[in-house]
Design a protein around this nucleic acid. Structure first.
Lengths: 202, 202
DNA sequence: CCTCCATGTTTACAGGAGAAACTTACGCAG
DNA sequence: CTGCGTAAGTTTCTCCTGTAAACATGGAGG
């Protein structure tokens, strides 16, 4: 990753380095007014160098968002592969993985769902988001087949599940899940309420 | 709106005018890179005038967010006062009112939950958000008393309901509720799934 | 009437986005 | 090896933003 090279003029892989720096800053600073120049500065390069790799600031943002979706998908897949007994438990694990990801990368998570990362412009970003959503969809379909989830339209389950997880993630990183409002462990509590509506086992 | 009077140097109520202009732009432009100067320009005033009413840009943003929470609360209260028969139907109406508000004011809604509107700084903003949340809480408590909602911890219901509505709103204004993913009417479908988990009547 | 002060304006400066022109060094044809 | 094309960096420039400071205006109170 961080090759401590002494490249005097040509960096070698500036594109990757810029992305790494930006991801690092997005994870570090809670909310960061993203500036290309700051990224360039911390990467140790002139403020115009990034334009050789990204047409404009938003193109870098979209690439960062794309990577975010890929990583989020990896986290969720990993959580689902822990050998948990029930599909319900797997859903719970995947949801908590998603929310955990958001809390560990609040800036990146916000970016992924912000208007700065316009998915109508960049097909690869759109695909990445769609693919990550597909993980959720696959879990729900599997749950319906094995009788865990109710046989309603899977799209309804998907919308509900996705919205719930995304909503909890957004509220969490906005520090709005205060104990006085929603209790001490709102995430599993809320997910359990939703799962009661999704599952057959009442 | 546009009073064609010749401003006698002193505007009269510039503070209000700036807020109105900004709210207008937040509703009009889907996603707008908020600039104080642009607000001043459209209000027909010098770019430094706003500083006589707001210490800095973020102070205006927080005030806008506060107003957003007040209006959102009004919308939700109104939706709940339509004389709908069941508490469940009232919840559904309030939720759809919230999501409708977000879709009609995407910029404002985003602002309300963005890190630009830091609720830890401004108590009145925090109070406004809390009060709007209280509307939801009140509905849930009432629903539990009348036997509509299950007698679990009300904070769990609150977290679930709030996250669901907020998640749907955010996904909707991010244009991520595509039919291919979540069907043609994802909002009521998702809310029904959640309500199945919240309500006693299965 | 004159003077104070809230509310405006003008001017100034730092910092960011991005374009254009210039520079460096890697890779390749002869 | 020499010379050159080109990708990748740098410098410089313009326009824009936030924000501070100094100045102007005009209504309210003595």
């Amino acid at each position: 990753m961080s090759e401590t090279n002494d490249r005097p003029y040509h960096h070698g892989d500036l594109r990757r380095a810029l992305i790494d720096t930006a991801l690092d800053m997005l994870a570090t600073d809670q909310n960061w007014a993203f500036t290309l120049r700051e990224v360039a500065r911390r990467t140790g390069v002139s403020h115009a160098a990034p334009y050789k790799h990204f047409r404009d600031r938003e193109m870098l943002l979209r690439e960062l968002a794309r990577i975010g979706f890929v990583r989020l998908g990896e986290n969720m897949t990993e959580a689902m592969s822990l050998g948990l007994p029930s599909t319900r438990a797997q859903f719970m694990a995947a949801a908590q993985a998603c929310i955990g990801f958001a809390c560990q990368n609040p800036g990146l998570y916000r970016l992924m769902f912000s208007s700065d990362a316009d998915k109508t412009i960049d097909p690869s970003l759109h695909d990445a988001a769609m693919k990550t959503f597909g993980i959720l969809l696959g879990l729900l379909e599997r749950g319906q087949r094995d009788g865990s989830f109710r046989p309603v339209a899977v799209s309804a389950l998907a919308a509900a599940g996705w919205a719930q997880v995304h909503g909890l993630a957004m509220l969490a990183i906005s520090h709005q899940l205060l104990e006085e409002k929603v209790g001490s462990a709102p995430v599993p509590a809320a997910l359990d309420v939703l799962l009661d509506g999704m599952c057959c086992t009442d």
